[in-house]
Amino acid sequence: MSNAYEILSRYDPEFPRKRAGRLLTDTTEFMNIQYGDVIELDGTYFLVLRDEKERSFGVEDPKYWVKRCRELHTGERKILKLVFYEKFPVSLGSMEIECFRSPRKEARILDLVRGDGRFMQGYSRDDAAGNNVRVLDVVQGELLSLAIDRLEADHKTYFFELLPDILDKFAEACRAIGFLHRHGENHGDIRRDHLWIEQGTGNYVWIDFDYTYEFRESPFGLDIFGLGNLLLFLVGKKFCTTFNIPRPGFDGLADVPLEPGDFTLLFRNRLANLRKVYPYVPRTLNNVLMHFSSASEVFYPSVDELLEELLPCIDEIRRRRINT
């Protein structure tokens, strides 16, 4: 078949002829690939539906190198990540590091985690120009952070009734990151936007592994810090900050003296010492959180060491729930 219309009329006869675009085997010019185009990859056809968008602070930011597609043969929704060698500075509080997008890294991790439900699934193929295109399954579900945000329980109820089960699943997500580390890989961009709850199973699923940076002596430190940030979000049911703590709707103690050492190492307005505003947070769990504070003298060198201290805390919250 020599053009997109022929392919579409075979696999999707209802598709309007006037919307049929080009048949592409080279995805280098990803900015020009749009709705109605068909990408051929190793004999498989993908109808381009739209550019993927990243949503933050209510603003949609199009990712032109990420295409929402339909695999024409199977009808399945897929995400095609095209090659975009982007180099950009990422601010981590007061620090700035240089990050890169690496298709090669993501493709390698997709191979490593094939069949492991704790990670997004997919495969990679080179297009005719040698661009490494990643073909990803769409994770059915929603962002963990949005699901947590939507819970209507007050913090104390959330903490004792819901958090232990959430932390069990988070611990599994941490083990998944530990699995990457044991294989010499890192996630590279652990944050709220990259952890989903899978519909049906309720499992936590990591997405987007293409970030990388120059490694130094602790190649996994940034991942562990990302896990710490997520843990702070989960325990607090939000990030407790100098912005929201003084507000009338804050559901913890707002009139407690807070010191610089109570806040996180990199985000100086984000509280790590959650026990100060939620006094029922057990000391043991608070101690784990304080490893990510600017007052900490030690940092978890591995996911295993983080889990070693976190797991007993989950049981402790459960025991306290029964006692209260």
Binding site: L92, G93, S94, M95, R216, E217, S218, G221, L222, F225, L265, L266, S294, S296, F299
Partner: peptide
């Protein structure tokens, strides 16, 4: 190096 940098990226000398 700052402590943050040492925590996140490690330090050969410290190790």
């Amino acid at each position: 190096v700052s402590r943050a940098e040492e925590f996140l990226f490690g330090s050969v000398t410290t190790k």
